[in-house]
Amino acid sequence: MTLLFKHLSVKIFINFSLTFLFIWGHPLQLAAQQSDAYGAGLNGSTVAITGFWSVTGNPAGLASLQYTSFGMDYSNRFSMSQLSSKGLSVGFKTNLGTLGLNMRFFGYSAYNEIAAGIVYSKMLSKKLSVGIKLNYYRWSSGNDYEVNQNVSFDGGIQYELSSSLLVGFSFKNPMTFFNKKVKIQTVSSNLKLGLSYYFIPELMVTTEVEKNSFSTILIFRGGMEYVYKKMFSFRTGIGTGMEIFSIGLGYNIKHLETSFAATWHTTLGLSPQISLSYHL
């Protein structure tokens, strides 16, 4: 089964790469799509991560959510106030699966983006989770230009290979609908395949490979999280793309989790981020 799953994942990954990517001319990488501070601390290596913040990553990861949770995050790209983004997220369990909502705003009066999504995730078995996310994107460049809108979807699966090893696969925006006005410009798509591994319960290492529609090469990422006394977290990650290095800290007190992260872009410098989440 494990072997079959591995083969299947690779096959799907390659097929998606060949079939769906690059079919549109100018994919736009929306800043509003970026991950929260938890994921940023791992340099975005989150495809095989479970938990509340999967609401912004692989939707399958939300299936294991235990408690209803709320979150908010703020990031300041390259330390410029005009390039800040703010997000709100919610996740809660239902009898039919886990639901999540996520909304994010990026930019300022002259240029802004909105990304909103609704996630549905379910554990199909003890080891297998799946998730899907419906996205709405809107971006506009001041008053002189038309507003652009897209609707699309994401999907993902996660499979527990062993008690300490999880494999994840996700796709983002494989096709978009309701493109208004500027049809040639659409949001970017990507495919991710990765692993997370627990050396000990306190230490998790992740790795993933990404193929996206705005770059011709594969991007590899790696991340690590160490949790000290269930209260403090230290995270770091690397990547072979433009975001080359990240460092993150977490502080958990009772039901409140706070994450800080800084990501280093190879030429543009540091981007700080903060996330807060609270679970009931």
Binding site: F199, I200, E202, L203, V205, M224, Y226, F234, T236
Partner: peptide, 10 residues
């Protein structure tokens, strides 16, 4: 230099 786990150092 970190040695969070005997099997993993960073």
């Amino acid at each position: 230099n970190t040695f969070f786990s005997p099997r993993f150092s960073l």
